[in-house]
Write a protein that binds this DNA or RNA. Sequence first.
DNA 1: GTGGTCTAGACCACA
DNA 2: GTGGTCTAGACCACT
Lengths: 123, 123, 123, 123
Amino acid sequence: MFLIDVQSKTPIFEQLKKQILEFISIQVLSPNDKLPSVRSLASQLGVNPNTVAKAYQELETQGYIYTVKGKGCFISDNDTDAQIRLEKMKEFKDKVKEMKKYHIGKDGLYQTINEVYEEEYHD
Amino acid sequence: MFLIDVQSKTPIFEQLKKQILEFISIQVLSPNDKLPSVRSLASQLGVNPNTVAKAYQELETQGYIYTVKGKGCFISDNDTDAQIRLEKMKEFKDKVKEMKKYHIGKDGLYQTINEVYEEEYHD
Amino acid sequence: MFLIDVQSKTPIFEQLKKQILEFISIQVLSPNDKLPSVRSLASQLGVNPNTVAKAYQELETQGYIYTVKGKGCFISDNDTDAQIRLEKMKEFKDKVKEMKKYHIGKDGLYQTINEVYEEEYHD
Amino acid sequence: MFLIDVQSKTPIFEQLKKQILEFISIQVLSPNDKLPSVRSLASQLGVNPNTVAKAYQELETQGYIYTVKGKGCFISDNDTDAQIRLEKMKEFKDKVKEMKKYHIGKDGLYQTINEVYEEEYHD
DNA sequence: GTGGTCTAGACCACA
DNA sequence: GTGGTCTAGACCACT
């Protein structure tokens, strides 16, 4: 279910966070679903448990998941998926602003969007 | 001319690289223009010369500038500005792909682009 | 394992790079092998950690090794040894072209090769 | 007659030395021929006179040219061309040794030599 | 005066 | 403990 690239420049715990958020956004993980335990996920991915713990901790701080002592971590139930997409839209807007800074015309951006959305769905 | 945020999480030398690329892209810096000397830029920004040197060196290995020992660093002359915009478009495409992964519709993206590009130009 | 000549005109970090490439080429270092840590190699060679780090960083940008933060540096896994030999052959070809420019006959070159390759293997 | 690449990593004075040696080797410049004056060559190439002077000085130290005060620099007359080719052969031998270190077979080297020497002559 | 290399030593993020 | 970034200050080669 989770895929990690240890050679990537982005820290493992960030990769994990991102994937969990993705799963929430597309409702593969729904409110009150249980996340795998830190230790099981760590051993499954072959990474340090501290790394998984860090990802979970940050997600909790940001309100996307909640922890029940002795039971595990669960997806929050406050429109979490909508929040995530809002967050992503903000990132997108920042990217667009950057494009504008480089004097890149909006037509090129439209075209790129169309290209991407016309492709078949794949990972 | 150059602005650095020492508080930022992104390394100083990366901020510098980005700004130089921006200036090339919008042709504030044109092929064979001379960049400020490592030492002068460093003292002007209040950072260590090594930091500026690192930015320049990376830009050189990436082919955006060239160095003449004893004379200084200069903007490369092979359509560097076009190359940079291409690179940026690639980044944008990746971002759009990410949006698609999160099941965000393309209409929202269009709208965001319009918002950004309708604003007055500012830094 | 590594030998550095601090007197040499060629920079220490270049000497290091060369030796590492040599070891990869003759498969003393194989894909995914771990390189010595920056600090340990530095102290072993009696040089500054920054110097070793620079060598590693350049090897990484050239694609010969990859870095996993918090774990160390490792040999890349894409036929790195073959790539290095190809690179070396290119250097050799350039040298031969130079010889031709100086109007040196190819017979002399053959002879030199035979001399070198008939000697016993040594460092 | 002389060609300089200011963007090259090899210092200008080295490029100059190399070209002069090349011309001696192929007898475009013969013993007792006069070299262009420091100032004329410098202005012709658009480089600093000190740079040309440095090239000449090193060539004199190495015995390839001699200076007559108030008259100029001249090619030495002691089989200079043969000496240069010897020097070049030494460089070639070092390169071959390097190839051997990387465990590159001699057959590949033969082949490369043939390729180069079969090409038409060009710069 | 220009960039290139190096040292000594520091702090941080990641695992 | 690992590499990444940064500072302060030094020496060298090239122009």
